[in-house]
């Protein structure tokens, strides 16, 4: 119940002005984009779902002619690169994660810091990628993550526009 109440306040996207935003990109609702993010489409459109957070230096590029889909409740931390890759929901990309060309990341995945999703690889649900040797494991539960993400979102929606030049779309 409490979560639904929170979501009611997050109808608008909070997008900072100091970003690179180019090409046909469609945002859902309640997204937060920090300054210095880089979203660019030189081919097909980018469809971004709802309630995602994009931190600084996140790069999302679509060069294919097919659309690039990103689900809901994702957290893209500093320096993540998404290159022509489809992303599910509830994913967490930790600093400098990299999803290479034509890869696919399904729901509830965690990509650890500096980890790489190789080209043309499809990651199944609930995968955790970590370490230098690309170790994998499956995690059972994700509820904890969700509540943190929601609180993070509400905080950013409240405080980011206070200090940054933001536009609420």
């Amino acid at each position: 119940m409490a979560e639904k109440k929170n979501l009611a306040n997050l109808e608008k996207n909070c997008v900072c002005k100091d970003i690179h935003f180019d090409g046909p990109i469609k945002l859902g609702k309640g997204n937060v984009i920090h300054p210095k993010a880089h979203l660019k489409s030189s081919g097909g459109p980018i469809y971004i779902g709802s309630y995602n957070i994009f931190e600084e230096r996140v790069v999302i590029i679509n060069e294919r002619n097919d659309p690039l889909n990103i689900g809901d409740f994702n957290l893209f931390e500093v320096g993540t690169i998404i290159h022509n890759a489809d992303i599910g929901s509830n994913c967490n990309f930790q600093p400098r994660a990299h999803a290479e060309s034509d890869s696919k990341v399904q729901d509830n995945c965690i990509i650890g810091p500096k980890c790489l999703v190789p080209p043309k690889v499809e990651l199944p649900q609930n995968t955790v990628l970590y370490g230098a040797n690309k170790r994998r494991k499956h995690k059972p539960d994700v509820k904890m993550q969700q509540s943190l993400h929601l609180r993070h979102l509400t905080y950013l929606h409240e405080y980011l526009p206070k200090h940054n030049n933001c536009s609420l779309i």
């Binding site: 320096g79 943190l148 609180r151 993070h152 905080y155």
Partner: peptide, 16 residues
């Protein structure tokens, strides 16, 4: 380089 403060939930309140 990027310097950003850490965040966590403490006693049910999210903050940096």
């Amino acid at each position: 380089s990027i310097i950003r403060p850490p965040y966590k939930i403490y006693k049910g309140v999210f903050s940096y």
